[in-house]
Simulated scan of single mutants.
Amino acid sequence: MIEIVRIPALSDNYIWLAHEPDSGETVVIDPAESEPVLAAAAERGWTITQIWNTHWHPDHVGGNAAIKAATGCTITGPAAEQDRIATLDDMVRDGDSVALGALRAEVIDVPAHTSGHIAYHLAEASVVFVGDTLFAMGCGRLFEGTPEQMFANMQRLSALPGETKVYCAHEYTQSNGRYALVAEPDNVEIKQRMVEVDAMRARGEATVPTTIALERATNPFMRARTAAELAERRAAKDSFRG
């Protein structure tokens, strides 16, 4: 139904390349840079037809212009941040949908990391692209929003089916997990997960995608019971040096 390729970029970014075989359409999610994306698509014989941006930060849109120049693709991103993403063709907001071949992705507003941050949920494929809102055992910093907004984001994403694969944009799992062990020291599932994460990173392996079910069990921000508790945990994580 859909093929998804992880493309490492910059120091710890992941760019996602998603291909729908029946239509031949290929979308790039949050291209930090262009060269590795164009190379990965060419290697597979895929034609890039779209870019989906989750938010305006340069490490998520830095490759937009060059990829568009090389492929003529259409760029979709948050309507609330259209003034900050110069390359956008189509602006979307909560409840809108975008197509990848026969697949539809629902747009979900998830502000807090940035004021207009969005996610793309492909329900048929059990996939969600979350940018910098939800990480494996973590959440994005509150650069432009509030704990209440991030708490609402966590609740909304937690309500997705447990098998939904979560594609975030950074390899932060190990550092997030070290804080999670402090936030919930009696959580056996976090301890078990960190054994696996440490082993994977020692082998140079990526730790994402994750799943909604795994985050429900081990993510201290998704597990926060109130916005106040999330705020406390986010502040603690911001200064955590473990």
Rank of each mutant, 00 (worst) to 15 (best):
G45Y: 11
L122A: 13
D238A: 07
A69Y: 05
C139R: 00
Y179D: 00
H170G: 08
D238N: 12
Y172W: 14
I212P: 06
D198T: 09
G131Q: 01
V195D: 15
D83A: 15
E171I: 03
D83F: 04
G140W: 03
A70E: 15
V208I: 15
R44W: 02
P31V: 05
L181Q: 13
T71R: 01
D59A: 03
Y120M: 05
E106P: 02
V127P: 04
E35K: 07
E124I: 00
D89E: 08
R203G: 01
F240D: 15
F129Q: 10
Y172E: 12
R223D: 00
V182A: 15
L214C: 02
V197L: 04
T173G: 05
H113W: 14
C73G: 02
E171Q: 14
L10M: 06
D83M: 07
A39Y: 07
L230Q: 05
D30L: 05
H57K: 01
K68G: 04
A70N: 08
A79Q: 11
K191S: 11
G95P: 12
E144R: 02
I190S: 05
E232I: 02
S175W: 12
L38G: 05
M1Q: 11
E205R: 03
Y172L: 15
P161E: 08
F221L: 10
Y167I: 04
G138K: 01
L181D: 00
V5N: 03
R44D: 12
A18S: 11
G62K: 00
I108S: 01
E33R: 01
T47C: 13
R225Y: 00
I118S: 08
T76V: 13
H19F: 12
A119P: 08
N64E: 12
S158M: 10
D94Q: 07
G140I: 08
Q149H: 06
P161T: 07
I67R: 01
P185F: 07
A180F: 05
V107N: 02
Q192L: 07
S23G: 14
E215Y: 06
A180R: 12
N153C: 07
A112G: 14
T173Q: 13
R216V: 05
E229R: 04
A69R: 12
G242C: 00
T47G: 09
S175T: 07
A65F: 08
D30A: 12
A105I: 09
Q174L: 11
A183F: 01
N13C: 14
G62T: 04
A69V: 04
G140V: 08
E106Y: 03
F129E: 10
A65D: 05
N13P: 01
G24P: 01
T146D: 10
A79W: 09
W56E: 10
A228Y: 09
I190D: 02
A40S: 13
S239L: 13
E25C: 05
C139V: 12
R6K: 03
